Simulated assay, not measured.
Amino acid sequence: MPDPAPGDRPRPSRLTVLAGPTAVGKGTVSADVRARYPQVWVSVSATTRPPRPGEVDGVHYRFVDDATFDQMIADGGLLEWAVVHGRYRYGTPREPVRKALAKGRPALLEIDLQGARQVRRTMPDALFVFLAPPSWEELVRRLVGRGTEDPEERERRLATARVELAAESEFDVTVVNDDVHRATDELISHMGLQPVPVAPG
């Protein structure tokens, strides 16, 4: 059977990288993308941290132990990885990203600042989007209101957030997460897709 003509093959898509400070709502925005824009392939990061209440393995993260994560690094199976907040490791499995882009699907990575910098070195043609809070006070309110960290962990994350906010100029565009659906639709527009109004109710 002959190969498809060049015009019939799917064109590789451009990768979009979404990053921003802790508690800004990266996970919430990427979940909204997953729910409302099924044509977008959303990467699932691997992490050594334990699941938070309501998180599902393979949907929100791939929860792995340290030995498994070490093996993924050794095998070259991660596009990027980093130690976040000085405790747990997070990384992006490489092969699912490659396959999604090769099929022509719009692909989204939701990662931290360290990971975004690594991806820029290996995939400089990607679109880098910085998700910003409406204000520092709102970021603190969201982190405290989440209630998933003890006071020591909260202070560690806020210290990290100050550093992360200072890196905004490294990104191609900034999206302010003042409203999840609005921020999602702005992100989708930057990805070259047509936003879809949220159904009432």
Rank of each mutant, 00 (worst) to 15 (best):
P4Q: 05
P4K: 06
P6Q: 05
D8Y: 04
R11H: 13
P12E: 04
P12W: 03
S13N: 09
L15P: 12
V17I: 09
P21L: 01
T22Y: 15
T22E: 13
T22W: 14
V24D: 04
K26P: 02
V29Y: 02
S30W: 08
D32H: 09
R34K: 09
R34V: 07
R34L: 03
A35D: 11
R36N: 15
P38N: 02
V40C: 10
W41Y: 15
V42D: 01
S43F: 02
S43C: 12
V44P: 03
A46N: 09
A46C: 11
R49Y: 08
R49P: 03
P50F: 12
P51K: 01
P53M: 11
E55P: 08
R62N: 13
R62M: 10
R62C: 12
R62T: 13
F63A: 03
V64D: 05
D65R: 11
F69Y: 15
F69P: 09
D70F: 01
D70W: 01
Q71S: 14
I73S: 09
G76W: 01
G77Q: 05
L78R: 04
L79N: 07
E80P: 10
G86P: 03
G86Q: 10
R87Y: 10
R87M: 10
Y88H: 12
R89C: 00
T92A: 10
T92H: 05
R94A: 07
R94C: 04
R94K: 09
E95P: 11
P96H: 05
R98Y: 10
K103N: 13
G104P: 06
A107F: 12
L109D: 00
I111D: 04
L113Q: 13
G115Q: 09
G115S: 09
A116P: 09
A116I: 08
R117Y: 10
Q118T: 07
Q118K: 06
Q118N: 05
V119R: 01
M123L: 14
P124G: 06
P124T: 13
D125N: 12
L127M: 02
L131S: 03
L131D: 02
P134M: 06
E137Y: 13
E137N: 14
E137M: 15
E138C: 09
L139R: 00
V140H: 00
V140A: 07
R142E: 03
L143E: 15
V144N: 14
G145V: 06
R146M: 01
R146D: 07
T148G: 15
E149Q: 11
E149G: 11
E152L: 14
R154Q: 10
L158Q: 02
L158P: 01
L158G: 01
T160V: 13
V163S: 12
E164I: 04
A167F: 08
A167K: 08
E168H: 11
E170R: 08
F171H: 12
V173Y: 10
V173Q: 13
T174F: 00
V175N: 04
V176I: 04
V180Q: 05
H181C: 07
R182V: 11
A183S: 08
A183C: 06
A183G: 07
T184N: 00
I188P: 00
S189M: 13
G192L: 07
L193D: 02
L193E: 04
Q194P: 07
Q194R: 12
P195L: 00
P197K: 04
V198P: 14
G201W: 07
